[in-house]
Design a protein around this nucleic acid. Structure first.
Lengths: 206, 206
DNA sequence: ATGATTTTGGAGTATCAACTCCAAAATCTG
DNA sequence: CAGATTTTGGAGTTGATACTCCAAAATCAT
């Protein structure tokens, strides 16, 4: 997911490191305080970088936001691959649930979902970002769907279950659960919501 | 939910109208572009009000945000009462689903959930607002739970179903579905997610 | 009606945030 | 090593934004 040298710009090893530092700092700050509340100066300070450096790598804040979306998309999809790639049984779904609840708990429920937060923040104010995030969610959904299809092929899921609809539902429940947990500062809502949904799946297993 | 004259401040009929106009304008703008991106000047223009008027009714932006949260909480809970108060059958849940999908469709998927958007926006940057929103969600959840308990009492829901857990799950799914629909500009995700969840409930009905 | 109180108009201020510019230092290429 | 290119430091500019102030007009209570 790391965007290395594009066609028009050659990036030195050191340059790439600086760029990465900027994106990482911006990603964290924007997750913690939102895009609009994160100033360029904040990012400069967190990344240990001067104004000219930042504007050397990004034409403006919008471009930086776009890079942040790519960065977070990569991080989230990595975790999802880790949890979903070899799903065979319903218990594997429970491990996936625990993976996400664990990450949330470690973060002490701060920030919520990196993609969900960006989406809510940018959906109405940055059309380009909206599409970029829609694509990210589509890829995430596809990952879940593939896992469910694997399970269905192994007979762990009812043959008449609809993996596509279930994938949307699971993704929605993850997003909503993360939001509720973030607001309440308590991992329970995410855990309960996923647990309930997975239990329903099990009950309709042949 | 309308906050009329508090103890320390007497509000004239006209004054209350002006205050209401400010809160309504601020609510809409903050829903459409987020809290941080909505400037006091934007609100002044939309409400047809001068700076001194705004600062006469609110000590600062934070206080206005708090009033906006109250306003949106009232609006959302009103709709939820409308859809949930007399729930007896599973079909009533489907009408509730249609109510929300209908509202979302009318809004052309712009803004998402008024509470969810505020929550995601403010959770990390305004601790007072976070608690205020947590309470709003708790009331919403309680409304859903009461509906489910009614259904359970009538035998429309399995006796061993857990209304509390189901309420959290439904609320999370609504929130996540609204977010996905907002990002994709398509009511389908919300519809699919709620539909799938309700279908699961039906399948485990005695 | 009249005096007290609330409401309003609008100009003004101090601060902050995004972005620019140019020359010096570091790094790469051959 | 030498020239071309990339990277960096830091002061400066422009515009926006939250908030203030004071006097005039409207409204209310008696």
């Amino acid at each position: 997911m790391t965007v290395t040298a594009g066609p028009g710009k050659r990036l030195t090893k050191k340059g790439q490191a600086t760029r990465d530092r900027i994106v990482a700092a911006a990603s964290q700050l924007m997750l913690e305080q939102g895009v609009a509340r994160t100033t360029i100066e904040d990012i400069q300070a967190a990344a240990g970088v001067s104004p000219s450096q930042l504007y050397h790598y990004f034409p403006g804040k919008d471009a930086l936001v776009s890079a942040v979306i790519d960065h977070q998309t990569g991080r989230v999809l990595d975790v999802q691959h880790q949890g979903l790639d070899q799903i065979d049984t319903i218990d594997a779904l429970n491990r996936w649930r625990d993976l996400m609840v664990g990450i949330l708990t470690e973060a002490q429920c701060v920030g919520g979902c990196p993609l969900g937060s960006l989406a809510s923040d940018l959906a109405e104010s940055d059309p380009v970002a909206r599409v970029q995030l829609a694509n990210a969610f589509a890829r995430w959904e596809q990952l879940i769907r593939s896992g469910l299809e694997q399970m269905q092929a192994r007979g762990e899921l009812a043959p008449d279950a609809d993996p596509e609809a279930l994938a949307v539902t699971l993704l929605a429940t993850v997003q909503g659960g993360l939001l509720l947990s973030q607001v309440r500062r308590d991992p329970a809502p995410l855990h309960t919501a996923l647990n309930t949904l997975i239990a329903q799946l099990r009950s309709s297993t042949p």
